[in-house]
Amino acid sequence: MGLNSKFWWKWLLVGGTFCFSLTNIPALAQETGFINLYNTGVDIRLGARYFERQCSRCHGLDAKGNDETGAPDLTVRLSRASSDAGVFRIIREGIAGTAMLPVSADVPDPQVWQLVTYIASLNTDPANFDLPGSVAAGAALFTGRGDCGSCHMVGGVGGRRGPDLSRVGERRDPDELKTDLIDPNETVLPRWWTIRATATDGTVVEGWRMGEDTFGIRLIDANANLWSFSKEQMQSYERVEDSTMPSYAQTFSESEIDDLVAYLFSLRKEN
């Protein structure tokens, strides 16, 4: 669309009013025989308003989901629906055996379609971004000078010292990816915190935190060994909530960072 709108989705979240059509919706809908006609900016806004009232209690105002309620993140590819028609059906019928109830029968279909359009708009469609970097150049840096594969897997190849990036473009937008490269400590998922544990027999194990609870800790160390400790087995343990990834601000030029961002943002299931 040529819409360089790295913030467009954030505007939508706060109820922005500009209009554009989501060209991907009719294409998706055709596959299943449904066509969502409620696909304008106004529909997105009305869908967002309905979402805030009816859906955000479980899915969050930012639609990013909530472990406590079991509500999934709706801003990434949905695991239970692969088309607009599928999302429509879930909203209409609910998901049996879960907290996802159907919307009231009084809600007219057009309103549900607007909600579908709003949810679709949250998914960071790469077609909506005109990034300055080159995907090919970024891929070369990733496997070459950056040696990113020593810690990260892409497509089943790479290391285990960092997150699998095979589909990172579905869950991080370009701004976030850039920050991840320049300032890895900005956002560190608890899975990537490190723990240094000293057992009562003096053994010291250090690794990434796969799981931690009141009574135990599970780690993966730098050699990909898995460890499980009961806290009773430890003299002490230390938790570091920084990232083990270095900043690449000095390693790469600004345009190279752009290339890496373009490459990472291109990593999706289709690839």
Binding site: N185, V188, A199, T200, D201, K231, E232, Q233, M234, Q235, S236, Y237, E238, R239, V240, E241, D242
Partner: peptide, 15 residues
């Protein structure tokens, strides 16, 4: 980001 150090009291029965 500050490191969190937790001391666990030694158990009567060592591991």
């Amino acid at each position: 980001s500050l490191s969190l150090a937790v001391q666990v009291s030694a158990q009567e029965e060592p591991f």
